[in-house]
């Protein structure tokens, strides 16, 4: 399964009829040591671009935005309990939430791996 990315450095990956969301390895590297994560409640709905989660490093706080509109169907308590996982495995074990899309066509606007790589290098 392939990753797609937003310009705000979230990644999205399909899993059944929902999508897993996290922050990119590039973003995790830029953030530095993550010390705090706040995730939305299951059942909450967001529009694309809404701030839905917070990640804080020693240096600063950053918002995590909803990459697509939809309803939260899962949240990864493991990264709340151990925020350092976000640095250790940002595109694997340290996923943030799973969202059930209200408009799957929004996925089309996201970048693929190659486009994101170029975007991240130049941003």
């Amino acid at each position: 399964m392939t990753f797609k990315y937003t310009k705000d450095h979230e990644w999205v990956k399909q899993e059944g009829d929902a999508y897993v969301v996290g922050v990119s390895a590039h973003a995790a590297e830029q953030l530095g040591d993550v010390v705090f994560v706040e995730l939305p409640d299951i059942g909450k709905s967001f529009k694309k671009g809404d701030d839905m989660a917070v990640v804080e490093s020693v240096k600063a706080a950053s918002d995590v935005y909803a990459p697509i509109s939809g309803e939260i169907v899962a949240a990864n308590q493991a990264i709340v309990d151990d925020p350092a996982q976000v640095n250790a495995d940002p595109q694997g074990a340290a996923w943030f939430i799973k969202i059930k899309p209200s408009d799957a066509s929004e996925l089309d606007a996201l970048m693929d791996e190659a486009a994101y790589k170029e975007f991240a290098e130049n941003s």
Binding site: G32, D33, V35, S57, V58, K59
Partner: peptide, 12 residues
């Protein structure tokens, strides 16, 4: 320099 290879947490 804001940080080196160790990163802020480990440097601290």
């Amino acid at each position: 320099p804001v940080q080196y290879g160790l990163g802020v947490l480990k440097e601290h």
